[in-house]
Design a protein around this nucleic acid. Sequence first.
DNA 1: CTAGTTATGTATCGAACGGTAAAGAAATCA
DNA 2: TGATTTCTTTACCGTTCGATACATAACTAG
Lengths: 195, 195
Amino acid sequence: MGLGRPRAFDTEETLGKALVVFQRKGYEGSSIAELTEAMGINPPSLYAAFGSKEELFRKALERYVGIREDFSREAFSAPNAREVVERLLRGTADQLTDPQSPPGCLLVQGALSCGDAAEPIKEELCFRRVAEEVALRHRLERAVEEGDLPRHINVAGLARYIATVSQGMAVQAAGTATRKDLHAVVDAVMQGWPT
Amino acid sequence: MGLGRPRAFDTEETLGKALVVFQRKGYEGSSIAELTEAMGINPPSLYAAFGSKEELFRKALERYVGIREDFSREAFSAPNAREVVERLLRGTADQLTDPQSPPGCLLVQGALSCGDAAEPIKEELCFRRVAEEVALRHRLERAVEEGDLPRHINVAGLARYIATVSQGMAVQAAGTATRKDLHAVVDAVMQGWPT
DNA sequence: CTAGTTATGTATCGAACGGTAAAGAAATCA
DNA sequence: TGATTTCTTTACCGTTCGATACATAACTAG
């Protein structure tokens, strides 16, 4: 099993460092030189452990998405749709402005637009964003069946609306918005909640 | 006046071509090779006419912002806040999905995150987004004075909320959202309008 | 016409990009 | 111990990046 020289670095730890860089500079904006420096390793170690820049990004993305899924699962467990959405948005506001990581969301900032080389990454991120929206829609559909959302409501539209606010908050966080600013946005959303 | 060999291309026209490329691929994602090909000129002509890639982008941005300002001025002329916001969001939904230009918004997709070299562009775009939000806030403050918005309302929060939705729609448009999808988002916003 | 000026096309420039070859170092296995 | 395997370091690969040098073409002024 443990044949040959052992790795001098912890892959999970260095992956975390790479994630930070990707989150701050995006896929295209992060160079191998910058990544390796942040990870504390040399290029050949990076390629041996992660395959390529694209694979490295995908692995970082997987971790990032995993964290978000844990969080949404928790939010989805709220007793009614209103509570689900508020938990989701408040948690997003907090996460987007977490002082321990660059402001913003990898799903939005990773590669919103890019050159041809990064197109697959852009599409992957787009797919992940849609997946989150779909997950919310399913939760809202359940809410309709459980009676805490009126039947006449456009559930798909509502889910897309919440996803849109969430993504807009990511843009805001990438700019100058503070945590307090984002919560003020959530206030506005919740004030207009249906019923 | 007209000394020397005249330009063989129209600067305004080629600037428009460049704008399209920047809007589709972002600042970093657009290479000089791609820009010059789209503009139908060679690199030296580009540099003679526009100075540098960054200056070219700034000029394209200025044009883009000008168009948006014309449009918001019109929306701001609506008789009340609700109408202003709805016109703004509907118009944004249409513009983001205008089939004659790449989907999305240059202010959001141009350089949401980037490498160090593009940082000034990123900041410029951020500043422009804030400027639009501030313009809306001023219009809403007027609405409060004119009595068509209740005095107790958090105007700054409301303006930021609308800006957030607008930016979120840009992300949606950069993905798979259709014009109809975006209008469904606007529906959700308007349904929750205060008072 | 010639002289002066500006734009054009070709053919690059040095730097940075993503990615690797090669040799030495550190582990396991016999 | 020595053979084998795997990782690390150094140095570098070919390509593409943004940006230009240079010779020539197209115009105006005199």
